[in-house]
C-alpha cells in the first residue's frame, strides 16, 4: 500500500489519532507529550503513530493534510491541528466535546 493510503487508512479508521514523536507513554518531544496528555485527559482511548519509528510516514505526513509540523491530531478523520491548538481547545472544553462526539459516532 502506498504511504498516503496507509496514512489515510489510519486517519479514517480511528475516531481519534495522534501522529507524534515517541509514544504517549514515552514521548520524545515536549510538544508531542503535551498534546498526548491533553488527549489522555479527555478519558477516551485514542490511537497513536510514532513517526520516529516510521520514516515513510515521517517524510510524507506533512503532505497529507498540508501541515508542516508534528504532532498532528486527527479527530473524526479531520486534522484539528498540532500541540498549541489541541491544548487551547482542551482548555476551552472543545476538545472533550469533539472527542466524545467522535467516539460516540464510531461506536454507534
Amino acid at each position: 500500500m502506498d504511504v498516503m493510503e496507509r496514512i489515510d487508512q489510519v486517519v479514517k479508521s480511528n475516531p481519534v489519532v495522534i501522529f507524534m514523536k515517541g509514544t504517549p507513554q514515552m514521548p520524545q518531544c515536549g510538544f508531542s507529550m503535551r498534546a498526548a496528555q491533553a488527549l489522555q485527559a479527555c478519558g477516551k482511548e485514542f490511537a497513536h503513530v510514532n513517526v520516529l519509528m516510521d520514516p515513510e510516514i515521517f517524510e510524507n505526513l506533512p503532505r497529507y493534510a498540508d501541515w508542516p509540523t508534528f504532532p498532528q491530531i486527527y479527530i473524526n478523520g479531520e486534522l484539528i491541528g498540532g500541540c498549541d491548538i489541541t491544548l487551547e481547545m482542551y482548555q476551552q472544553g472543545e476538545l472533550q466535546k469533539m472527542i466524545d462526539e467522535a467516539v460516540n459516532k464510531s461506536t454507534a
Binding site: 518531544c29 507529550m33 515521517f58
Partner: peptide, 11 residues
C-alpha cells in the same frame, strides 16, 4: 502559554 521542555527526540 509557556513552551514545553525538550525530550530529546531530535529527528
Amino acid at each position: 502559554p509557556l513552551s514545553p521542555p525538550c525530550l530529546g527526540g531530535g529527528k
